[in-house]
Design a protein around this nucleic acid. Structure first.
Length: 550
RNA sequence: UGCCGGAUGGUGUAAUGGUAGCACCGCAGACUCUGGAUCUGCUUGUCCAGGUUCGAAUCCUGGUCCGGCAACCA
């Protein structure tokens, strides 16, 4: 839980100190029309975090006032992702749709008190009435129609007597306001679209600006935290609350949404990437969706720490993806069991072993946590090592294998390269040399991971990299196509060899392939006869970070 | 050129009139059976111009730049 004292924390504390509210009630109000992403995680951590920090509660509410794009599939996915992130809304799960009747009553109240009217200006034409930011608008010719008439029309709108778009309910506020949202905004529209929750019961639906403040008020929300783009809506939010007479009024406070380098967060673009097949679904590990990150192997704790660290401000920032990766590594370093796997194999033959020599070596499961014990790994005459760990002509800063040079084999003594077998093009295919036990205490500068050829299990590995080639995707102008900047190598699939224990990795479990990075047994495709791993993140600054990429 | 909001190292974020700090990134070193981890050190910052004050990132005035707002979306 966050203990950070950002400006919203201070505002809430001040409200409490001033006695404006007795307890803190927040809410996370997603519209069930898409999957949650890391940007939502920031809001979730904030909403649940502030409630927890002040001993209050946080509601989960589906903001489902537009039936055209909402569905139960998303409702379930949203709940799953929030639980996975580590938050619990208890009994406080709500649907805005369940408030439709009460919202309708509030609308009637506004009409009765002269604060709303039924307007018949066609949508297209309304543009001319609304005006532009620099000039005041004009009043609707229906603005001053008798209250009884609006009441009658509104009831008949509900009864389905009028076609979609033929009329709407408007708040009567101020057509000259410099804030466009106050120029008689629409409160209800006619929409003959079945709702996933209320079916065909309604043909009129409240708009966000009308529904949201009411939802908050109905639930006794005290602090309604939302992103910056709603700042200009706040006067309207307050207007609805006040006009309907709710006390104490919930307070809307806005903060900057999260932007991350090398990725996109907009529902529209995420949806396009999925629909157009640039990725393999909403849970593609390259996507910043929570289900994608789960499948990628990101621990929820890392995401929470990240959200804590980035803070809460009103500054429109662009956070480096590296910071998220930092927390992923930090958490995984302590938790992920170590394993050995080779992604770009090169054969090593130990000449002073005969074919019958098969031994086992014992290595720690996690040097960061000795309590996790050790495991035994078969070791033999033929080993796979990483092709990149050998150079014919090593540069000065290359400490690994080269002609005549010795290295340590992880947990298995030393190996000295004596000669190299090549194919017709001169490419090394086997490195021959001698083995020496750990007691030989050879002076070497590096340790290599390896897998016994005779015991290796075949693994399929999906190497993931940034989805985009440029850090600031939002900087791409509208007349350019952001798809041009998709990273063609955001997914590279390779086949390698792993130590036997890898075959028993539970799907969803993340392990560290020593010297390479963290890899997660794929929750969909890993099976008893097919070992599929997703690279969660490379080890920091590892020279093998790009191993297997050809 | 209307309204709302914002501006502190490469990035993110503290400092609420009193030594500009932390984290990430990067670089260097120590240590290490992972070129990982760990430890140590280092580089780089208050948008600009005035003003108030003993003292300004902070307060005032004027600018500059950036973001948002003209769906019957949320």
């Amino acid at each position: 839980m966050s203990t950070t004292r950002h400006f919203i924390y201070e505002e809430i504390a001040a409200d409490l100190a001033a006695g404006r509210y007795r307890a803190v009630v927040t809410r996370f109000p997603p519209e069930p029309n898409g999957y949650l992403h890391i940007g939502h995680a920031k809001a979730i951590c904030l909403d649940f975090g502030m409630a927890a920090a002040f001993g209050g509660r946080c509601h989960l509410r589906m903001d489902d006032t537009n039936p055209a794009k909402e569905s139960m599939e998303y409702v379930e996915a949203i709940q799953r992702d929030i639980r996975w992130l580590g938050f619990d809304w208890g009994e406080h799960f709500y649907y805005a749709a369940d408030y439709f009747e009460r919202m309708y009553e509030c609308a009637v109240h506004l009409i009765r008190t002269g604060r709303a009217y039924v307007c018949q200006v066609p949508q297209e034409e309304w543009k001319h009435y609304r005006g532009v930011p620099t000039e005041p608008g004009r009043e609707s010719p229906y603005r001053n129609r008798p209250i009884e008439e609006s009441l009658d029309l509104f009831a008949r709108m509900r009864a389905g007597e009028f076609p979609d778009g033929s009329m709407c309910l408007r708040a009567k506020i101020d057509m000259a306001s410099p804030n466009l949202h106050l120029r008689d905004p629409v409160l209800y529209r006619i929409l003959r679209v079945p709702h996933y929750r209320t079916g065909n019961r309604w043909v009129i639906y409240p708009t966000y600006d009308f529904a949201h403040p009411l939802e908050d008020a109905f639930e006794g929300v005290t602090h309604s935290l939302c992103t910056l783009e709603f700042e200009v809506h706040r006067p309207l939010y307050d207007w609805v609350i006040q006009s309907c007479g709710f006390q104490p009024p919930p307070r809307q406070i806005e903060f900057a949404r999260l932007n991350l380098t090398y990725t996109v967060m907009s529902k529209r673009r995420l949806g396009e990437l999925v629909r157009e097949g640039h990725v393999r679904g909403w849970d593609d590990p390259r996507l910043p969706t929570l289900c994608g990150m789960r499948r990628r192997g990101y621990p929820p704790e890392a995401i929470r720490k990240f959200c804590d660290e980035i803070g809460v401000t009103k500054y429109d920032s662009l956070t480096e993806y590296a910071l998220l990766e930092h927390y992923v590594r930090e958490v995984l370093n302590l938790r992920a069991p170590r394993r050995m796997a080779v992604l770009d194999p090169l054969k090593v033959v130990i000449k002073n072993f005969d074919d019958s020599v098969v031994r086992e070596v014992e290595v720690p499961n996690n040097p960061e946590n000795p309590a996790e014990g050790t495991r035994r790994i078969p070791f033999g005459r033929e080993l796979w090592i990483e092709r990149d760990d050998y150079r014919d002509d090593p540069p000065p800063d290359f400490y690994r294998l080269a002609p005549g040079r010795a290295v340590r084999l992880r947990g298995a003594g030393f190996f000295t390269c004596r000669n190299v077998v090549r194919d017709s093009s001169g490419r090394p295919i086997e490195i021959h040399g001698d083995w020496a036990p750990a007691s030989a205490r050879l002076k070497v500068r590096s340790t290599l991971h390896w897998v016994s050829v005779a015991h290796a299990v075949p693994i399929e590995v999906r190497l993931y990299d940034h989805l985009f080639t440029i850090p600031d995707v939002s900087a791409i102008p509208d007349d350019d196509d952001y798809r041009r900047y998709l990273n063609p190598r955001s997914l590279v699939e390779v086949r390698g060899w792993g130590e036997p224990a890898l075959a028993a990795t539970p799907p969803g479990q993340t392990v560290q392939f020593e010297r390479l990075g963290y890899f997660c047994a794929d929750s969909e495709d890993f099976r008893p006869d097919r070992y599929v791993f997703n690279r969660t993140v490379t080890l920091k600054d590892s020279p093998l970070a790009t191993a297997g990429r050809g």
